[in-house]
Design a protein around this nucleic acid. Structure first.
Lengths: 200, 200
DNA sequence: TATAAAACATACAGCGTGTATGAAAATGGA
DNA sequence: TCCATTTTCATACACGCTGTATGTTTTATA
């Protein structure tokens, strides 16, 4: 893999992804025109369709990036946890925090399932945040830190869905600052209660 | 309000909504062309844009219809419950069942938030299923059947999100029959455990 | 240095949405 | 009953956007 070519290739691809991220986040997938993206990226349509199969394929790369960034936040928060259950708690709170970003909210939570379809969206999430949650719950059960009748996979779906909706509600732009912080407090408390309900 | 006119008006509108429901459910909002809808409905573009402001407005009516049908199932199930908490349990299970329909899954859960925006989608849901859940939780707290520190609004968001994701996972077409029924059992058990965690 | 491949630019075809305008049917009043 | 008006829908068209086909330039290779 040659030197100059790889550099140029990655530069334009990264530039496209950066602009696409901003456009998809600000206007949503449907309202984003590829012409705007290539213009702001300083290239043309040709470059876009050389790097990506189509508009959806470019969006897929942006969604993947969003989930990577979410997982990074989760791992940072839960890495130094003294126990598996404490790691789960810290990871969940970090997830809520990460999804407070309007960008991630729009890209990963709102448009992702609709544009890519639920199955593929879930598949991407399974490679990152959802997978970490599922693995954490499985490990907790192996350590007898979870109730014996708890199914880690079912729990992962329920908790993931609960946290996604909580993040959407918390990052609602129409929410006032004080209501947001109040809601966040009660959301976090209720979420931790849910987790505790399945611990031994 | 004249006789023949109202009848004709409602007939073509209902016909459009029926066809639109089927198309949106089968192919999703983006892949549905209004030309297909009007052709299968036996009318032309003119009729569509007379009854609805645009394609999104027609989808809005379909989403509203979906939520109405969901709420109907919930009310049927929880009406004769002997207690408020039992009503909540039956209502939640009925919601899961109602959203097993591929149509409602695609329309209300996947495309709804993306096409209408989260705020408007949530507003519609608040008029129906989500509102019923919130009111039920509020009433349960008033009856001291919920823990004093439980915030009904926060709980409604978390439980609603959990159930939506559970319904999406359970109605995944790629799922085998046995895995689906196994997953449903553990999902329902976990969901009831979540509810029980907040009861007194 | 010549040739091939990669990376991107340009031009164009086609589809789908929304709008503007026209036609038919139904109502209400004289 | 007949005419005027409104409702309800049909027709025609303009515009934007996506994807593809082809051309051009730069880089690697022999």
């Amino acid at each position: 893999m040659p030197e100059k070519r790889q550099k140029r290739y990655e530069e334009t691809r990264d530039q496209l992804l950066e602009v696409a991220w901003a456009e998809f986040a600000a206007n949503g997938f449907a309202q984003t025109s590829t012409e705007n993206v290539v213009r702001e990226a300083g290239v043309t349509r040709g470059a876009l369709y050389y790097h990506f199969k189509d508009k959806t394929d470019m969006f897929r790369a942006v969604v993947d990036l969003a989930h990577i960034r979410i997982l990074s936040r989760i791992e940072d928060a839960s890495a130094s946890a003294p126990s598996i259950t404490e790691g789960l708690r810290r990871g969940c709170l970090a997830f809520l925090d990460a999804c407070s970003s309007p960008d991630i909210r729009q890209i990963a939570l709102i448009d992702g399932p609709s544009v890519l379809g639920w199955a593929e969206w879930r598949e991407i999430d399974t490679k990152h945040g959802f997978g970490a949650l599922r693995d954490g719950l499985t490990e907790a059960k192996r350590q007898k830190a979870l109730r014996a009748d708890a199914d880690p996979m079912a729990l992962a779906y329920l908790l993931s869905g609960a946290m996604n909706e909580a993040a959407l509600a918390l990052s609602d732009p129409e929410l006032s600052k004080t209501r947001r912080s109040n809601l966040r407090r009660s959301m976090e408390a209720a979420l931790l209660s849910m987790l505790a309900a399945f611990e031994t």
